[in-house]
Every structure is written in C-alpha cells, then in structure tokens.
Design a protein around this nucleic acid. Structure first.
Lengths: 213, 213
DNA sequence: CTGATATGACTCATGAGTAAGTTACCACAG
DNA sequence: CTGTGGTAACTTACTCATGAGTCATATCAG
C-alpha cells in the first residue's frame, strides 16, 4: 500500500487563478446557502476538494474570501440592474423589467441572492467596503423610480420618499425571495405573476415595453 | 480590607420570579440589539448584574433563555395585532390601524422587533416552536386582508395570493424597520406618514375609522 | 535547486455549559 | 431567644467543543 501520508501534497496541481475560481464558486454556494456565520472555512475547503491552508494562502482570511465572493455576487446583480436600467424603460414597466432581469440572472446561481442579503456577516473592513459600494450603485435606480412615482402624486417630502424607497426595496426582496422559496417556477412565469400583482395594486400596466426584446 | 473573595455569593438576593424577569429584560434587549448569535450568555449576565451560572440555573441553556424572550416579544406583538384586528376595521384602514398599533407597542421596547425577526437564531426545538406559533397567529390577519384585496381585483390564483401576502408582510416590515432606523419620530407622525404613502399608491383612503378612538 | 502548489498537524481564542462550594434566610426544637 | 439543619440564591473557577488561523514540510515542473 502507498506509504505516502500526505495524500497529494506537492502535486503541482492546477494554476492559481483556476483554483481560486473553484474556491470562490464553492464558497459562494456555501456562504449563500448557510450564511457567513454558519459556514466554516473547513466546509468550503471540503466542498472545493482542497485543504484549509490553501484558502488562507490565497485569500488571507475568512473575511477576505467572503469579500471576494461578495464582489462576484454583488457585481453580477448590480451589472444586471444597470443593464436593465440602460434599456430606457420607465415607470412601473421598469420595475417589471428589473425584476425579470433579476430572475434570469439568479436562475443559474440562486444562492448569490442570500449571499448579498446575508445579515450574519460582520460588516467591517473589506466586506463593508464591498457592500457599501454595491448599495451605492443600486440605490440610485430604485430611488429615481420611486421619486418619479411620488412626484406624480404631488408628494415631495424627503422622508416620505426615503420611506417609500424602503418599501420598494423590501417589495423587490419579497418577490425575489418568494420566487426562490417556490422552486419550479421559471423566470417567465414569475415575471407574469409580478405583472398580475402590480396590476392588482396599480391597475393596468403598459406592458408594450416588455414584449419587445 | 474585606477577606471575602466571593463578592456576594450567598446573598439570599431577590426572589426567583423577580430575578428571572430582570434577566429576561436584559436578554431581550441584548438579543434584540445584537442578534442571537452575536450575544453571549456572559454579556447578558453582566447586563443583568448577575453571574452566568444563575442563567443556566433558571433557563437551562442559551436557547432556553432565548425561547422565553421570544415568547415575551412575540406574545406582545401578536396580542397587539389581535387587538387591532378585533376593532373591526377593514380594508386599507385596517392596515393603517395595525401599523399604528405596532408603532405604539414598540415605542417602549423597540428592540423586541429585531428579536422576533432575528435570522441568526437557530430555528430548532423550543425556539422553532415559539416562532411557528407566532407565525401561525400572525398569518391569518395579513392573509385575510390581502385575500380581500385580491378578490376585489378578481384575482383568485392561490400562488398569486401567497406572493402578494409575502409582499405585504415585507412592506409592513419595511415601514416598521424604517421607523426604528429614524428615531425621533413619534408613532403618530409615522402613522400619518404611512397614510400619505398608502394614498400615493392606492389613492385616497377612508380614514374615518382612524380618528375615532 | 528554486519556486509554486499543496497538506497534516498543530496553536489559540472564544464561548457554552458544569462542578462544587458559599452565604443568608427561615422553620422549628429545645 | 438561641442553636441548628434545610434550602434558595448565588458565585468562582473550572471543562470542553468548535473553528479561525499558522507552521513546517512534501512534491513536482522548469
């Protein structure tokens, strides 16, 4: 039988960049599914098929690894929101388009949603910086849409706007979370559901912007 | 100088029931402000002015103590919701009345809100039982109101109802959380704000039910 | 032989939970 | 009114598990 005690220590193995990506993939999934606090570095190492010290070699600390995951996850989601925003849709149709884009972006890797919304992560240092940047980029879009709605209604109170914005963000979160909690529903179906729900509250919506690509 | 090493071990001290209440008060605050995971039993003991083993003596475990806190907090909030529900208001006015009641109930002990909505607590055993019971009691009220709205709009899809209910619960949470994040606003002011926001979305609301006691 | 990839086997801090003992009050016998 | 034992209230000083982070070492490509 093999006398080597250290299974494959020294195997030159895969290139650092590739290995880092594998680790980040495994970590995103683990962090997203169990939360930062409940996920141990050993768990991630096992899931990635490597050993713990390699993670510290490449990422420095658990926080460091989490910050990279956050960068990936938040970057993906923010890019998607900026993409739909650039399409030029306005009003409620824009809300629908944004939700639709989010469902599609999350379909292949649904766990990154919880990663970004994880409250068990300590907000400090690199993690805080990542999240702050993410929130900064996201803020404008929701805020502008809500401001438009408020202005139409003739309400220009700044705190009312702030509160309404909070409501919109939570509504967005509610719909995405509901979708994640009810698997087996395609993004298309969920978008149609959102259109029905919005119509219930706001009356008929002009969906002309949604049928065209 | 005093030779006694054990400061006040043996002081007969206060009656168990009273001490338990003191501990629960301190624990509710600590758990609510820092979250279950980030709060250590030693922290609570210090805040309550007693030592750790006394907590284990009275509550068995950290989970046991948390379950009692949850019972207190969830009980307070649920009772408030059931109280406003019993007032017989319907439609959007009922939503406003419920929010108003919640603001008033939370004013003296705002931390219990985060306690009930804490995701860092392990949902198992007694804790899970408490939360499940709380959710069961809460569920009906929001659900009925949303069902009423959906029926009025002619939508009887069960999953649409489920999703809309999720949106309502998150909206409720958004408003309460926003209020807690913006101290210095009285329940009255916040309720007025909610009325304005609801009007923006739904048009004028019949607030006749709100002016009467 | 140097440097990159990789690991087994540690250290160390933290925080839950426990063992064993200390003191004050109370009921009751003398 | 004075001992004396029972018990409730309370503490110090531990144990023990877990999980973050480190060290010394191994293998192989160029």
């Amino acid at each position: 039988m093999a006398t080597s005690t250290r299974s494959n220590a020294g195997t030159k193995g895969v290139a650092r960049a590739v290995r880092e990506q594998q680790i980040v993939d495994a970590a995103c999934r683990a962090f997203g599914e169990s939360g930062f606090a409940a996920t141990s570095v050993a768990d991630i190492a096992e899931a990635a098929g490597i050993s713990k010290p390699l993670i510290y070699n490449y990422f420095g600390s658990k926080e460091g690894l989490y910050a990279v995951c956050l960068h990936h996850a938040a970057g993906t989601l923010t890019a998607e929101i900026e993409r739909t925003a650039a399409s030029g849709t306005v009003g409620l149709a824009r809300a629908i388009v944004t939700l639709d884009g989010m469902f599609r972006a999350l379909e292949p890797q649904p766990w990154i949603w919880r990663l970004v919304n994880d409250s068990t992560a300590a907000r400090e240092g690199a993690i805080d910086a990542e999240l702050a940047e993410y929130e900064r980029r996201i803020f404008t879009f929701g805020h502008d849409g809500v401001a438009e709605l408020m202005q139409l209604a003739g309400n220009d109170d700044a705190r009312d706007l702030s509160a309404m914005h909070a409501v919109w963000e939570h509504t967005f979160r509610a719909l995405v979370t509901w979708w994640l909690d009810h698997p087996g529903e395609t993004p298309e179906q969920m978008t149609q559901r959102c259109i029905r729900l919005f119509s219930t509250v706001f009356g008929e919506i002009d969906i002309s912007a949604l049928t065209a690509p």
